[in-house]
């Protein structure tokens, strides 16, 4: 599939990517269910959570986890605030969580259909297979951020993103299934199974 994109001429590729991003735009507030599997070196098995992601407009994201424990995080204005049931809320700077900054940048740009914002933060590669499926590969332009997150792959079809895979530089990876795909999270996910799910369903 990726070989296809290698053949595509660069300007044309950029134009398609822009058109695609523009088609993804939704009016705020936009909500979508998500299920996330996080594969970390320090853990024997992935951590799986599910809930709802919402773009509240502007630079604000809200991530509500409903399972396994309820937790609401707001990301925006340079800050992250976490509210967990039965505990006092915790806030910290986005600066200290570069992954979140990238998540925010990519998500807001995608949901806002704002291709130029996306290109500001990332180099964007677009690939599509013959059928409906496409992949946007985002590489952080900021060298420092690239030291923690090496790239983000977003898979989808039509104007629906299905999957967001964040590859961290230390080998950890977080895979988010979005929209209707959120229900497809297997009970014991593996990286390969999820990658296959994302790339072709």
């Amino acid at each position: 599939m990726l070989s296809l994109c290698a053949n595509a001429s660069a300007p044309e590729d950029a134009a398609t990517a822009r058109a695609l991003v523009a088609s993804l735009g939704r009016p705020a507030p936009a909500r979508t269910p998500f299920a996330e599997a996080r594969f970390m070196k320090m853990l024997d098995k992935p951590l799986v959570v599910s809930g709802q992601l919402a773009w509240l407009g502007g630079d604000k994201l809200e991530r509500t986890v409903e399972h396994p424990t309820r937790e609401v995080s707001t990301i925006g204005d340079g800050e992250v605030t976490q509210q967990r049931e039965g505990r006092s809320s915790r806030s910290f700077s986005l600066k200290r969580a570069p992954q979140l900054q990238l998540l925010l940048d990519s998500f807001v740009a995608l949901l806002g259909g704002d291709a130029s914002r996306l290109e500001q933060a990332f180099t964007v590669q677009h690939s599509a297979d013959g059928a409906d499926h496409w992949t946007l590969t985002l590489t952080p332009r900021d060298a420092k951020l690239a030291q923690t997150v090496s790239r983000i792959d977003i898979d989808g079809s039509g104007n629906e993103p299905h999957c967001m895979r964040m590859q961290e530089a230390d080998g950890d990876v977080a895979i988010d299934l979005l929209g209707a795909y959120a229900a497809k999270m297997p009970a014991t996910p593996t990286r390969d199974a999820l990658a296959a799910l994302c790339q072709g369903g």
Binding site: R63, T69, I75
Partner: peptide, 10 residues
């Protein structure tokens, strides 16, 4: 919980 939350990276 922290590791699956936005604070994980920190």
């Amino acid at each position: 919980d922290d590791l699956s939350s936005p604070a994980a990276s920190m």
